[in-house]
Design a protein around this nucleic acid. Sequence first.
RNA 1: GCGUCCGUAGCUCAGUUGGAUAGAGCAUCAGCCUUCGAAGCUGAGGGCCGCAGGUUCGAGUCCUGCCGGACGCACCA
Length: 682
Amino acid sequence: MILPLHDRVRDRVRAVLADRYALGDDAGVSIVIEYPPTRTLGDLGTPVAFDLARRLRKAPRAIAQEIAGALGAIEGVARVEAAPNGYLNVFLDRRTFLLSRLGVVPGLPAAPAHTEKAIVEHTAINPNKAAHIGHVRNSCLGDTLGRVLRFRGMPVEIQNYIDDTGVQVADVVVGVRHLEGLDLDGIRRIADTTRFDYYCWDLYARVTEWYAGDKARLQVRADTLHDIEHGTDPVAAIAGFIADRIVRCHLVTMGRLNIDYDLLTWEGDILRLQFWARAFEVLKETGAVFLQTEGRLAGCWVMPIEDDLAAAGAEAAPAAPAPADAGPAGDEDEQREKVIVRSNGTVTYVGKDMAYQLWKSGLLGRDFHYRPFGTTLDGRVLWATTTDTTAAEAGHPPFGAAAATYNVIDVRQAYLQKLLKQALIAVGHPKEAERLTHFSYEMVALSHATARELGYAPPADSDEARKPFVEVSGRKGLGVKADDLLDRIIEKAQAEVTRRNAALSPEDRDRTARAIGVAAVRYFMIKYSRTKVIAFDIDEALSFEGESGPYLQYAVVRANNIFQKLQEREGLTEADILRSLLDTPAAALDGDDGDHDLWALVLEASRLDDVVEQVVRTLEFSVLAKYGFGLAQMFNGLYHKSPILNEERQDLRRWRAAAVGYFRLQLARVLELMGVHVPARM
RNA sequence: GCGUCCGUAGCUCAGUUGGAUAGAGCAUCAGCCUUCGAAGCUGAGGGCCGCAGGUUCGAGUCCUGCCGGACGCACCA
């Protein structure tokens, strides 16, 4: 870990600036710590002298030289140099650095842990059909976010929102009852004997077609929705059954990817427990919403939309809204408004979301009841909300009321998420709004090749054919199901594992193939910027070569093998080697022969904490993916160039082994952050 | 119309709060398995960083305009 050294260097430079140039903390000089492009130039560097050049009317190089001369000794630093171009470069004490990273000698104290809780909401798949590739992107990002926050010491609560009362579930209920003519027992038999999420996937597509055949049939949907909302059986019972079973399918699918949750929040409970009613009171009391009495929205409770939402006014435009009374001139609806409660008295999706968000931020003054729903991947109770007061209340951890909330939802929801934030401000909680983050990401589409493979080729002369990718459509049933993708990639991994490791037991082969498949899928989902549309190509995702999850795993497996062989052949453990380093000259690490690659690996491996900080700051996981890949690349280069087992010089092999030991520790951590396990062999 | 995002090598993409010679993977070509596992390594070719201005000691990165593309702006969720 490198950040404590950043801080130490930065503090010392700051002290020199204050001392020598009378530039205190209020002078606004930011001391940026970077990494010089090569290790011969230094290990850490700062361009601070460039910043000061104008202010001090001096050449950057001269300033850098002055600072370097005034710094004095810094613990853990071998020397500081002013580069000819004005950079101030820091060379670390390599031996001490590596030994302290490995715990052989005491290191710097760890940063204090965060204590505030964060809620991460992700997945939130409509419980009416199988998960597809787009959902996988959401869940992988959300799960990684949770892991990254926890890595920094923050308690995290992962929630999965279940929309069990919307039209999507209603549509499948319509299919069950009107297309299939089934009752609850009938659908239960099917659920018990088939891939139920796949069954519903197809049924849902058929219902969509059925509606298209005669618009009058939409009345059936409306009636079904009404029955679900009012708990009228048998419709409500069937809807409840479907949602429950599909959610369990989703949990299994996500579990295959090492993704799980602490709490399932059911939308139905938000309504039944009057969360909305309470939120509505708050919204009315604070004037955040008001009853529109005229115009086309007459009879609706609406929220005025802030200017900066509609038009990107850079300035705050104080007191712009001034709702209601004035009544904007006639039909010109200058003042834009968002309907929260429809004229028929029902609440919109945004309203429900506001109630949910108020609860998440601890501002609602109500709580759910909780029931055990299942078991998490690590054997804890997976909780779900409930209205049932007699359910097992005891023993559940406190839920909700987080200091920070992250909503992982695709970019198309940006507008609504912004409204949500605005609502928090409107009810008097700007701080909570500040700490509400919409973690947005772009869509997953299909490459033309993959769409063709799935039997969907847009007509050659159509607009679709000219686009760079083909859109996924859940309604038409067009898309790659998450489980199909996983099945295929694991099957392929298994063939590869079998070819390479004939002696492996079937169980080990299976486990290994699953680990590799997960790595391939999860790395693929992480390696692109979240602002980029992924044109999903099945062959590309299935590839295990080059920049891929398995490449990272393979590097760790190789490193593990070295230590295994050391143990087998010479009875040496990593601990033995580390102990022996205390009185071994560190020429190998110091690069006395002009080769700094071993040290470069150590320094790069230590950057994980710095990378994680950047990841959290930018919410950009491609940074983590690239870091892991680059680290693995450095190791692989060294692996071919600098042998350990076959190295005769004791000092060389020991320091190489120590560096590799640190490398595998750090890369394994990177993989863990991605939710990827390292198999014993592959 | 308004807003958000994207445009970097043949293809797919990185590029850290502006910094040192713009980097990977795939594809192509040439090499490397008797030496810790070749899911690997080494090397080569391939770039008006969409275009034009501006700010700066310094711009792929920030600002303005334009061009091209995606998405959003419902009494749908």
